[in-house]
Design a binder for these strands. Sequence first.
DNA 1: GTCCTGCATTGACCTAGGTTAAGATCGTTC
DNA 2: GAACGATCTTAACCTAGGTCAATGCAGGAC
Lengths: 196, 196
Amino acid sequence: MNNLPFRAFLTSNMDLEKAEIKKLLETCGQQEFAKGQVLLSPGQKCQHTFYVGKGLLRQYSLDNKGKEHVLQFAPEEWFMTDRESSYFGQESIYYIEALEDSLIFLIEEQHIIQLMDNFPGFAEFNNKLLHNHIRHLQQRINSLLSDPAEQRYLKFISTYPDLLVRVPQWMIASYLGITPEGLSRVRREMASRYDH
Amino acid sequence: MNNLPFRAFLTSNMDLEKAEIKKLLETCGQQEFAKGQVLLSPGQKCQHTFYVGKGLLRQYSLDNKGKEHVLQFAPEEWFMTDRESSYFGQESIYYIEALEDSLIFLIEEQHIIQLMDNFPGFAEFNNKLLHNHIRHLQQRINSLLSDPAEQRYLKFISTYPDLLVRVPQWMIASYLGITPEGLSRVRREMASRYDH
DNA sequence: GTCCTGCATTGACCTAGGTTAAGATCGTTC
DNA sequence: GAACGATCTTAACCTAGGTCAATGCAGGAC
């Protein structure tokens, strides 16, 4: 089984022992998703945590006016799941979609629990992921409360420089909480400040 | 030691065994904070997780124009900490302040790790807290992206009806991401819609 | 090639909410 | 009770960003 990307990540980044990594890789499936394919839809229960070996995922919601709102992007080496749904067993209100042809490793929620029970290193590893997630969400909220659109865009660029070229601009706008037109204007104003 | 509020919470809400609860209560201190007292300031490392036995805490940041932005409130039976700081060992950029005279139980970060290692029930308990936190943050982001101010206010009322009377209105406005004047207007418009 | 379809940009106009400044209403302190 | 500070409200005005509609470009698909 070609689980190399995931194995490499687990080996290099986490304090996991060989046995733990082996067990994790054994219990998780892998699947290719084509660009545009949907991994999770509203109304479904999210059964997996997705690890992105190759490609790019996004999570978004649809408001009552039919407008999309991007909650997260997940490029290579990121995990994505709807924890509201997978952990609490509720029906999700989000979409998760592949933005590129992607190689995804799927970890079932119950396996996570099993692994945590049996491997202390894995519990720690999971703990770290959760804290990382919380840190990101908290920073994002603080930015949404404190920063005007241009600041948020600048922060996005410096935090995710690679996404800038992989993701259409209107999705970045959506992530920032503004319209595509709004982002276009922000960019124009930034540019006009430079060619004096 | 009068740790009754915390003990009662742990006993009723979590799948913890007596030994685990005993251990947790033994290792955590408790302290009274007067209204207005600050538990954490920017630049400090957050050493504790705070459990609110009585009273009310808030976490907020200060932007470069000197404006406050409320990230969270924590009334009775809630936990509060700056996980960005306590878990990752960074200096905090937030304040945590008591909004009322409060009885707080303090759990040191290292004790949490110890407890997680030694008591599987506690690891699960902690895991649940983290997921809950993530759920809240995610819902808040989605609301900030999707909802106009009035919607956000209505959601706040239905989620935290008690805070409505315990927290000054300008702090609620700050939590919602608008100015006090803005919230005042929203309320007026809501009211005017009812006395036709 | 031509015809799509999706994305980015622009400009004119609009609106939700920010800003400023002035009261109104309090609970506190002396 | 007078004086004070904090909170909330109101009103006039302002601005960041939304809305709408038009235009310009790419790639594909054929």
